[in-house]
Design a protein around this nucleic acid. Sequence first.
DNA 1: GCAATAATGAGATTGGATCTTGTTATTGTC
DNA 2: GACAATAACAAGATCCAATCTCATTATTGC
Lengths: 144, 144
Amino acid sequence: MADDAREKWLAEAKRRMRSAGMRSGQSRTAVMELLARDGRCLMSAQDVVDAMSARGASSRASVYRVLDTLHELGMLHRIDSGDGVARFEIADPDEHHHHAVNEATGEITTFTDPVLEASIKAIAARLGLELTSHDVILRGTPAR
Amino acid sequence: MADDAREKWLAEAKRRMRSAGMRSGQSRTAVMELLARDGRCLMSAQDVVDAMSARGASSRASVYRVLDTLHELGMLHRIDSGDGVARFEIADPDEHHHHAVNEATGEITTFTDPVLEASIKAIAARLGLELTSHDVILRGTPAR
DNA sequence: GCAATAATGAGATTGGATCTTGTTATTGTC
DNA sequence: GACAATAACAAGATCCAATCTCATTATTGC
Ligand SMILES: [Zn+2]
Ligand SMILES: [Zn+2]
Ligand SMILES: [Zn+2]
Ligand SMILES: [Zn+2]
């Protein structure tokens, strides 16, 4: 993701926190800035905890709380990969993508597809659903 | 699902177990028959444990092992709904479907969509992936 | 600056899932 | 059918991500 997109994300996250009546404590600030600066695809909460403690502080509880808050504010996607560990990534409408898992190696690749997105929108409309989020995960082995 | 489809599923599950060199112990047999007879959409392991203990036996460990085995044999889908509880359902090619969560009520509905499935196949081909499984989850609130 | 109160940190706790170990059951062979 | 080999099982201990508790600290409006 481009640097300016990350700055925009950070500003928007702070704005939403403020307008939700939340204070800007050190943990919230630190986690948001870490995500904006070094956030990767599919970070686990533990990844963030580790990165934070390498930088000085923020308790595990705080990291979990901030990630949850950012998710509720719509600033983070939460992806459950099936191994019992929730993973997060910055929610940027311009960078919307999904993930494919190579089951032989565990390697994860990302992809985008307009037809897929269109069909998801159509399904939601058919079901009478105002879509807030959706997940798509492909799993397979490299075709020989 | 139709009764004969369930019988077919049960027979196929037993066949795959056998051809994988596995014996038919009481736990495996009981869990498979329970799933074939009373299996529902999105059953948690605990659901199965409860159903089993209501019928007499099978330890928690055994239920987890059997569910895992059936998943590895391709007889069960495993869906991670995001609440930290893995959920299972019978894998029947004729009954392939996905789930939509009403975030207001927690209610889950199922849907099928040929366009969606076609786009997933196309994406897998593009990525050079021999697809073994895929998940799609929609989340939203009822459109007003 | 002060009071009100939201946010944080540290550790305890929860709960789903897995692991360990001694026991039991299944299967092929005689 | 009895037997030995060994796979499967049961029960409880254990693991670990995630959450909760509550005393302490920091932020904000006044
Ligand atoms: Zn990603
Ligand atoms: Zn999408
Ligand atoms: Zn289902
Ligand atoms: Zn599908």
